[in-house]
Design a binder for these strands. Sequence first.
RNA 1: GGGGGUGUCGCAUAGCGGUCUAGUGCAGCAGACUGUAAAUCUGCCGGGUUUUACCCUUCGGUGGUUCAAAUCCAUCCGCCCCCA
Length: 377
Amino acid sequence: MQCGEFQLIKKSTQCNARLGKLYTTRGIIDTPVFMPVGTQGAVKSVSARQLLESNAQIILANSYHIYLRPGLEIIKKAGGIQKFNSWNKPMLTDSGGFQIFSLNDFRKINSEGAEFKSHIDGSKHFISPEISMQIQKTIGADIIMCFDECTPYPSTYDYAKKSMLMSIDWARRCKEEFYKDDAYRTQALFGIIQGSVYKDLRKESALKMQDIDFVGYAIGGVSVGESKEEMNEVVENTAPYLPENKARYLMGVGMPEDIWDGIERGIDMFDCVIPTRNGRNGQAFTTYGKINIKNGEFKDKFEPLDAECDCEACREYTKAYINHLFRSQELLALNLLSLHNINFMLKLTAKIRKALETDSFFEAKKEFFEKYYSRKS
RNA sequence: GGGGGUGUCGCAUAGCGGUCUAGUGCAGCAGACUGUAAAUCUGCCGGGUUUUACCCUUCGGUGGUUCAAAUCCAUCCGCCCCCA
């Protein structure tokens, strides 16, 4: 099977949820899947071994960051990103469009590509769809993404349309560049659907992307400030126009409730910085809701973060100790909470996959939220 | 014994006649975080209430000077330094 190909195993009779398998060079991924984010090639504070033991199936890296530092020469010498970071399972790289468009004050965009300033040293760089493909081929992840514009929110209809059409044009160029050599034998290129919150633009983008024809499709331009209702509508207005036999990836999402909502609407893949970022900031996801472990109430709670979790943090440490680690700025705190939150998201998706096997999505959802929202805060 | 200095909101500091309930940092109490320029950011942090302004009470103690004192004076108390 070709890298990036998707096998639909089972469809829910209750909703649009799907159980599937995604084939990649470095392994088969069970979907729906949550992908921890390791922007700079490292999932912040978490080791590759810990990720492996957490049953992570695939992690992300960002080609913008890797390109700027350490630079492609080092990645080439290392023999690719997975040799470099010792993660031997599947990886996905984002194109860097998100960074260039949303994080740089200085940037010049034209139909050719985008000029931008490095956030590290201010140096100027230019990335076009073609260059992005070259960068991502060099980095060597199993799945790579088209260079697109992550349309900001809110955007006017006119801006969103122009932006979406530009991303379509760039997608065409990405594909052409990608298939110039035999990279497709080991890598998969996904197209990214844009169109902001506009129903017809999402549909148009989805259909035009299929005209170009990609092995998998992502829905981009979400979780950029819109409401959860709007995000759900975007998925509802996009997923039906995507082919059943290809993977669907909702970029940058999300919170546990977003994962349920996305899967219910036919999404197979998610990635999000929340488990690690929020973990570093003291928030832990638990079976009984979110808690901020830094809060005073946990000073003397000599119990696991989540009694129903068997991750290293929950097996071996208590809330009181992790509270102490945060208060005394011990670095172990960052690792333990990031690790736990990643486990939470991975266990959540595993639980959903299991429910889909027995076609009991809504029963599982109800059970999850009865506990998850039982905590008053 | 002689001389000099100092005492400010839990801690450390700023303030040195009005714009001071008093600035800043830390600590404390909460909240936010969605394709990571994030071990970050935001709010609260004397008491009371109609939570919105207002009232009451603070700058070691006491007593003064002054229209007005954290700021000036006297004195007491506590610390610190130098010389004997």
